[in-house]
Design a protein around this nucleic acid. Structure first.
Lengths: 343, 343
DNA sequence: CTGAAAGCGCTTACAG
DNA sequence: CTGAAAGCGCTTACAG
């Protein structure tokens, strides 16, 4: 900066003003400074700038495993929205250790970088863990449904998705349904989805066989058993990746969807999911990203909104080819139209 | 920091030393400082620290659209490797505008943050564009095959993948193959893959029908035509997402793989790709991430290696159910075994 | 519109 | 082992 000032024949103050885009500079000065800076390849040091101005336009992002397509897409959209809002996002991904040390570790590093705000897009951190940081900087959760507490949150409308899928399945005439229930500690959003689905099914008089799950393959063997014993005619999963594993297992077992059993997933974010014809519910990733950024922008802005933000973003049912009326007794276990033949 | 020093009854210098883990402090002081810091919730300001020490342990990452599963996975693995190496990654994603302003824009912002090094995981930036930055900080490209120039690069072994897939197809007896050729400016890695595949096929005496493509659906209509006219018995795509679109189109057209035409993709990163049975080649994402981080760590370290780094990471063929010998004339266009029935 | 000076929160020789 | 002091690259009142 010193060099630029010297070469342009002005003071460092002026160079600073030029780069900050503050009005108080003559056009002549501005042009000269820009020209010289360009020539010298000068790029202002953001760190020093923020240190001096006690301001920061960078927002920290805590993300859950971007390898999961739903989070990968969310990440991309968040970046785009942030870019449009002139906010720089610094992100840290959590994988492996789903909770505990690494989450808090990352949180501390982000705090050390003196980010202006935080977007937390991982269910692994509880709101209680976030509390101590909330006093220092604004935090917006993205994707984890929060019903209570004071942490701002924008999340998918898990009630709507549960209702749509449950209604779809019930309307087809299913009366006994297996439900993969992801355990709360494994994935909170999935847990909420499953719970809501159970409630919606129950409200429609459908019998439920809950299958607790942590790993992606948990409960699958039970599904196969239940289908063979004709105890269920449908299985609902709180995530597409789980539904895919069900389809895989059915295939191996010589069974098919929806011939032998109807199958639903949730999120519909995976590219090619349509090829597989999985009946699912497309969550509103794009809108979630947009709202998360808009809210954090407002919170770190000059006139932060008061009160706790709590927004729900809608999605839409994606009817596929894996849900159909239950097989009739006369048709038996191997009906004419199977998923494979329809493909 | 001032507060911590006061509360601990020491100077700021000592507090600094404690947090830097420098040996020159008594155990008593160290413990006292840590205790007080914990109590006051003090987290050192990374910006100020780096400014004062003229050092930085943060590495910039330029990523291409994490919504693409291959990049999403790469991103996650890079973060993990960086975490293990005590390096903080600041990432910026490029999507939409594949080249030009936004890429350079992001590059400048990263430079403004005075990152110690750069990992560039997008093909949209040419090495020539990177040159001016190379003088200032170490840069490692990840995933874009570089044959010349002075930019460090670790990339997928596109020769190996092309050879494996081409050999697989040729060995099955195919003698006329359509090849989706992504244009250089749309995706350089795909372009290289396609080109290499063409060479490998040619070397095996296979006739090639090249189909230039930019958008994900380009060339697909031609494939359908060629299949109907019996001019090809296989189609090879430089990316799984393209192959999925081919499968989709075949389905719509009432054709099937490998009954009517064999299909191959490349990358095999998509979850559920096995369910679709797509024959592909799994690229070594994990290893690439590991090497990229290891190299940047070495380059920003005390004893940077000399010479231009150029590493290739291997992958492996993933045989699926979409490649089989060409349909025989006697069986005609609708042979007995179709993908769907095998599923 | 412009410059001199103090200060942002740290680190690091330099003396003890 | 410890502290006083200068300095990292900027910004920002405060005077002109």
């Amino acid at each position: 900066m010193e060099d630029v000032a010297a070469a342009a024949g002005v003071s460092r103050s002026s160079v600073s003003r030029v780069f900050l885009g503050q009005g108080k500079v003559s056009d002549a000065t501005r042009e000269r400074v820009f020209a010289v800076a360009e020539w010298l390849g000068y790029v202002p040091n953001v760190m020093a700038s923020e240190l001096a101005s006690r301001g920061s336009s960078v927002v920290g992002l805590l993300l859950r495993d971007a390898a999961n397509p739903a989070y990968g897409l969310l990440f991309t959209r968040l970046q785009e929205a942030a870019h449009d809002a002139s906010i720089t996002l610094i992100s840290m991904t959590i994988s492996g250790d789903p909770r505990g040390s690494r989450q808090i570790d990352s949180l501390r590093r982000l705090m050390g970088m003196r980010v202006a705000g935080l977007i937390v897009a991982t269910g692994g951190v509880t709101s209680a863990q976030l509390e101590p940081f909330r006093e220092r900087i604004p935090i917006v959760r993205a994707g984890r449904p929060e019903e209570t507490g004071h942490i701002h949150a924008v999340s998918y409308d898990e009630h709507a998705s549960a209702r749509a899928l449950a209604a779809h399945v019930a309307d087809q005439g299913h009366r006994s349904v297996a439900l993969i229930v992801t355990q709360e500690h494994a994935s909170y959003p999935e847990y909420v989805r499953a719970t809501n689905t159970a409630a919606e099914l129950a409200a429609r008089g459908v019998r439920i066989v809950p299958l607790p799950a942590v790993a992606l393959t948990d409960g699958i063997a039970d599904v196969i058993d239940l289908v063979r014993r004709r105890e269920i005619t449908a299985v609902m999963c709180p995530a597409d990746l789980r539904a895919l594993n069900v389809l895989r297992a059915l295939d191996v077992a010589g069974l098919s969807a929806p011939g032998d059993v109807s199958v639903t997933g949730c999120d519909a974010v995976l590219p090619g999911i349509d090829l597989m014809g999985l009946t699912s519910y497309r969550i509103g990733v794009e809108r979630l990203a947009e709202r998360a950024v808009a809210n954090i922008a407002a919170l770190i802005g000059d006139h932060p909104p008061s009160g706790t933000i709590r927004e729900l973003v809608p999605g839409r049912l994606v009817p596929g080819r894996t849900v159909a009326p239950p097989p009739t007794a006369s048709v038996g276990i191997a009906p004419a139209a199977t998923l494979e033949q329809e493909l």
